[in-house]
Design a protein around this nucleic acid. Sequence first.
RNA 1: GCCCCCGUAGCCCAACAGGCAGAGGCAGCCCCCUUAAAAGGGGUCGAGUGCCGGUUCGAAUCCGGUCGGGGGCACCA
Length: 955
Amino acid sequence: MSDTTPDTVPGHRYTAELAGRIENRWQDFWEANGTYHAPNPVGDLATGDLPADKLFVQDMFPYPSGAGLHVGHPLGFIGTDVYARYHRMTGRNVLHTMGFDAFGLPAEQYAVQTGQHPRVTTEANINTYLRQIRRLGLGHDERRRISTIDPGYYKWTQWIFLQIFNSYYDADAGKARPIAELEAKFAAAGAEFDGKTWAELDKAARAKVLNEHRLVYLSEAPVNWAPGLGTVVSNEEVTADGRTERGNMPVFRRNLRQWMMRITAYGDRLIDDLDRLDWPEKVKSMQRNWIGRSNGARVTFKSSNGHNSVDNVDDCDITVFTTRPDTLFGATYMVLAPEHSLVEALTPAAWPEGADERWTGGAATPAEAVAAYRRAASTKSDLERQENKKKTGVFTGAFAVNPVNGEQIPVFIADYVLAGYGTGAIMAVPGQDQRDWDFATAFGLPIIRTVDPGEGFDGEAFTGDGPAINSGFLDGMDVEEAKKTIIAWLEERGAGTGTINFKLRDWLFSRQRYWGEPFPIVYDEDGTPTAVPESMLPVELPEVDDYSPKTFDPTDADSEPSPPLSRASEWITVELDLGDGPKTYRRDANTMPNWAGSCWYQLRYVDPTDSERFCEPENEAYWLGPRADQGPNDPGGVDLYIGGVEHAVLHLLYARFWQKVLFDLGHVSGDEPYRRLFNQGYIQAFAYTDARGVYVPAHEVVERDGKHFHVDPDGGEQEVRQEYGKMGKSLRNVVTPDEMCEQYGADTFRLYEMSMGPMEVSRPWATKDVVGAQRFLQRLWRNLVDEETGAPRVVEDAPDEATLRLLHKTIAGVHEDYSAMRYNTAGAKLIELNNHITKHFPGGAPRVVAEAVVPMLAPVCPHVAEELWQRLGHTESLAHGPFPTADEAYLVEDSVEYPIQVNGKVRGRVTVAASAGQDEVKAAALAEEKVAALVEGKTPKKVIVVPGRLVNIVL
RNA sequence: GCCCCCGUAGCCCAACAGGCAGAGGCAGCCCCCUUAAAAGGGGUCGAGUGCCGGUUCGAAUCCGGUCGGGGGCACCA
């Protein structure tokens, strides 16, 4: 390291130590001068001229974790910064900043452990984070920093919640509307609700009706209950193996009264509008997959059973969703999910005559069999239910009527049918569905093929296309035609309808935690939820003694959530006058999920100080509105949004949903939040385990002959095993940006990260490679500054033609690379140019070259670029340019060297004037010595001249 | 099981739209500087593009198959 031999290093060499001084100085300068302040059209931040050409660049909202940053975290931040700086230098008004998504579980859990208020630890973490990112020289508009835990911010999160609460989805118009309009419609149209008109309903009854239509509503549906966390979580937060994404706790389906957001109303638009977005295909397909739209039909099967146990016989009809209504003639039995609400009503008192032993599970009555099966299913976690692919189930004792042929078919319950998808019930067609085939085989149920699988088919269920058979009036039709025909037939008879089904379910929006936004909702004595008036926002979090929700044994499925806010007795009851005079209300004790704050933060970045509105319309339209230059279908949104792919369905789906509601209600001008999305790759790292499987510090490992050895500080050495993956404390392979800044400087670190590969690619961290970036900056520095004296060493003479050509080629290439986020190749071009300077100008760089190369370096290495710019004699910061432009005159070559291929192999080269026509090139190629020898009087079959590229002679 | 992405020097990566496989960095090697060493300087070596086949005058690039790696979804009716 440089500090070991200070006496031999020239005083003005670009060492880590000098870089550190330069970086500090410029960070202070930028901050003091508001260098990165981007003016708004109106309001507090309307400072300075407003360029028409703007760019909004955004990083995904970071959570300020207590662990601090490792070198992987800033990759995306530096990428957006380079992009922002490049565009700022070319004259655009660039909005780039960073705030914090600061509510969340880790801070709360830490608070529970230490007894410290989560705000205290969160704010400390934010300060650490800010210190770390400041050191990297990110050009953020500091005035726009926001934090979701700030009451000035979450006031508006609550306000948006109320907008959604006070809306319904008008399916005919295909958009959200104020709930007041629906109320007026109900009042005017004389609509009836259980035989009463709107006017006849009392307040609570009206509220109940409206609750059924609101975009945020209270629901009693089954939710994901995680006893180990003491809270419910959304479907998106449950992993495929039925555990919580955070905390890895088992999740159980429980009927609990919870807030839901009606995101399903937007299913079509959320899918269709993906086509208008400039997003990675991968993310789009993940969203399509998650939303899971499928076309099919709902078909109702009448059931005459159940009247033994329940009075209302009509209620026993079973509606199923199917994507294959064409196979209805092959439906030989039905299956309900064990949790299906009709199960009890359907179940008769006794088994029908001769019920199969396999069907009854050996139980004396259907009720016993059903109860036993339901009990068994409910104690299984989702994972267990999925793992066991062997079909289980039990007969309910009931039958239903197949509407196409009047056949009585048995009704089962089985856990291979999911309660939450479709109607929670299916018609089983074993001939065309493998799952049904498996079940039918296990239970001895009939199998009827309704699609001809063709000669020689020896499989089980046939899911392909073919002519319908055994299907009455459908026989002979292909699947597509049969579907159309049967849907029309069903609709005519009122037995079914063509329909679209979504896998997407409504968004469970309440959590039983402390550290989140309180709901701006109170309940009256009837338990009717009412919005807190806007004037009373924000509803602030109360101080409490105990931040933890009541948690339970993680496997205790029967436990009940008990949110911490419910114990804040002072806060929970409140006296309000909501129009009926002062009354006592009870506050909602839930908090919003972590995703709430990040659903709309781009809007607040735009107008962070506005106290009247969440965002002024002029500012919103300028930064986020649709733009004519983006084509006719432009949805608007952030111009470049960079983050990891892990938020593909959670945050990105929720944020799109909120944006669409705000758009429908006229609060914003664009209907998508993020026009262009880009997923950066991850920085990964090697980790090493010794013979015991214990991780050893990665920096103490050396490689020899493809083997890895851990060199103990005491001198011992042992072979270790290499793993590749994440960087993390427990893997003992963390490298921090702070260390890199200390050892090399922030500019070197930035340059190294950007040159490791293209932005989207994941790559391994290699500390030993960082020195390459440092050497380049040292060489560049040395070409412009005398290492002994610190004086500039540029020469005023005009450079030669070849140098100018290279310079302008570099300028043109660097422009392209920066716009395409190919920072690795931009860096390589600058190194190439610098190598040229080193070789040809030992006395110092020509000024014209120096004054171009420094600004070109600035987006990646802003500090050293500012420093060099100043030393070249400039007094203005480089942040807003100038950025050099290429002179076309130097880009066109006078002459071109053509490689000459004979039968595809290069055999020689000729140099001809760039203006030469194809015939001249051809003639020159054939005249070339080695080529002529090969051709030797033969007449070539073909001579291909690719202008500017090569010549290929085919013999 | 289904879907998507990626395989180029020892390593990380370039190669516009099919047209000379190499821009850049690390490591290696040689030389210079140095009493010496180093993350100081200069230079140099290095792969025929995972594998098989096809299309083409010409393939890293397009197509089919195959192997390897990564990711997403997964009883969604």
